[in-house]
Simulated assay, not measured.
Amino acid sequence: MRLRRVWLGLSALALATVLLNVALVLLIQRAHTQAVGAQAQRQLAQGLTAELQQEAEQLASLARSYAATGQPRYLWTATATSWPSAPAKGSAGRPSSRPPTGRR
């Protein structure tokens, strides 16, 4: 009778250990999936940041060229290379796609 109680107690302990291990494995797997998703999002954000920085440098260069020369072709180039964007609420949208007529 005493051996049977010990056997049942150890069996219950072993079952609880296995269930705990399964729960921990599931939690670790979920954390890993979230970490992989966060890493992918971070890489995407870094790529977009680098692209935005390059675009900003290019537009700054075109603005400097326009300021130094006054030639409207730099404004036309800047408009043509800018990212297309949706107009904000209540705004008139993007400026005209025609090149400027001259220096003011």
Rank of each mutant, 00 (worst) to 15 (best):
T49C: 04
M1Y: 09
G70H: 01
Q41D: 08
L26P: 00
P100G: 04
S91F: 06
R64F: 10
P99Y: 02
Y74F: 13
Q53I: 09
R104K: 15
R98H: 14
S97F: 12
Y74T: 00
Y66E: 02
K89H: 09
N21Q: 14
V22E: 03
A56T: 03
R64L: 14
Q53H: 13
A50R: 15
G90A: 09
V18A: 12
T69D: 13
L8N: 07
T33Y: 13
H32P: 05
S65W: 01
A80T: 00
R94C: 11
A45I: 11
L20N: 08
A63R: 07
L10R: 08
Y66S: 03
G102Y: 11
P99D: 05
T33I: 03
S85N: 01
A68H: 05
L26S: 04
R2Y: 11
R4A: 15
A92R: 12
S11I: 08
E57F: 09
P87N: 07
Q39H: 08
A67D: 09
Q39F: 11
G70W: 02
L15Q: 09
G70N: 04
S91T: 11
K89S: 13
L27A: 08
V22T: 08
T33P: 00
Y74K: 02
A12Y: 10
N21Y: 11
S91K: 03
R103K: 15
M1S: 13
R4I: 15
G102N: 10
A67E: 03
T33E: 09
A63E: 10
P95I: 02
A80H: 04
L19D: 01
S91H: 10
A12S: 09
L13K: 05
S65L: 13
R42V: 09
T69V: 06
S96P: 01
W83G: 04
A67Q: 14
E55M: 13
N21I: 12
G90Y: 00
Q29R: 15
T81R: 15
A23M: 14
A35C: 05
G90T: 00
A12K: 13
A60E: 04
A63F: 07
W76N: 02
L10G: 04
P72V: 00
V18L: 15
I28A: 14
S65N: 08
A67N: 07
L3P: 00
R42H: 10
L62K: 01
M1Q: 10
P95A: 02
G9Y: 13
T81K: 13
A14Q: 10
A50W: 10
S97R: 03
W76A: 05
L19W: 10
S11Y: 10
P100K: 04
I28K: 12
E55N: 06
P99S: 10
R94I: 02
A92S: 09
A86Y: 04
A86K: 12
R2G: 01
W76T: 01
A38G: 00
R103C: 11
S91Y: 00
S91M: 06
V6M: 12
A16R: 06
V36P: 00
G47S: 05
L3C: 11
S91N: 05
A78F: 03
A86D: 06
Q39T: 12
Y66M: 03
G9K: 12
P84Y: 14
L62Q: 03
L62I: 04
R64W: 06
A86I: 14
